[in-house]
Nucleic acid binder design. Structure first.
Length: 258
RNA sequence: CAUUGGUCGACGCC
């Protein structure tokens, strides 16, 4: 049953929803995980009705089943329905709370998100990061930073979230500071961190720093610059008047540029 | 190591 369920997800991940359905219908036995996988498949392809129908007809539901259907409604902007599911579910775990909070954040209902956050038991690093991102999304950098400072521990994703928040709002210098601080606290940047740093430099016209980061990522962190990194740097160089260098870099991309 | 929650670019157009 595990293999069959894996196959259902594999087809789903490759956009082969019909094959996923066929497989699900023909698998010799199903357990709650298989049902959940199928519900998720429908949800990810925008088939909310089918997802809900499966959810209602499945023989037994666990908290993951509820979470999947809740997130499906939440992500499509059906906040009321999501909230109803949230209140109806027999028990809620951190995932249920976080999905609900994420939904309110994305819709700009920060007060409601905050209320839920305050009521939430057992807050983990993920929901703290969700709050950072949610507030930053609506330009509330101050509050976002407050969550960042208050959270009991920070991981790479939380650091990336604040760095990105600064980068996206044109605070290149602040992003740079965070980037350094992150490493002082023993966390190594990944491709996403560098992406944000390059974009921060790009927005602030920090040409030298941008080149520096681009070099640094392969030389000191064994990371391979992707198309995104190249695009940022090319843009930065081009806008900085170094059109020839930008073009040279473009011609040096070791894979097919878009 | 079967299913559910948090972070990522640029440009152009509207």
């Amino acid at each position: 049953v595990i293999s069959w369920t894996t196959m259902v997800r594999a087809y789903s991940d490759h956009g082969q929803i019909d094959e996923a359905i066929q497989l699900f219908q023909h698998m010799p036995e199903r357990n709650v995980v298989s049902w959940n996988a199928m519900i998720l498949t429908f949800a990810q392809h925008g088939c909310l009705k089918e997802a809900l129908q499966l959810f209602e007809t499945m023989p037994a539901r666990d908290v993951a089943s509820w979470n999947i259907i809740l997130a499906a409604y939440a992500e499509q902007g059906h906040l009321k329905a999501a909230r109803l599911l949230f209140s109806l579910m027999p028990q809620r775990d951190v995932i249920s709370w976080t999905s609900m909070i994420t939904a309110y954040c994305k819709e700009g209902c920060l007060e409601v998100a905050l209320e839920l956050f305050q009521d939430m038991p057992n807050k983990d690093v993920i929901v703290w990061t969700t709050m950072i991102v949610g507030y930053a999304l609506w330009g509330c950098l101050q509050e976002a930073l407050y969550f960042f400072q208050q959270m009991p521990q920070r991981d790479l994703t939380s650091w990336n979230a604040v760095i990105t928040a600064y980068a996206q709002h044109g605070h290149g210098r602040a992003a740079l500071k965070m980037f350094r601080q992150m490493q002082l606290e023993g966390i190594s940047p990944d491709e996403i961190s560098f992406c944000s740093m390059l974009s921060a430099c790009s927005h602030d016209g920090l040409k030298n720093e941008g080149c520096h980061f681009f070099t640094l990522m392969s030389s000191n962190h064994s990371l391979t610059p992707s198309l995104e990194h190249y695009s940022c740097l090319i843009d930065l160089l081009g806008r900085g008047g170094q059109v020839d260098d930008a073009e040279a870099l473009l011609n040096n991309i070791p894979f097919d540029p878009d």
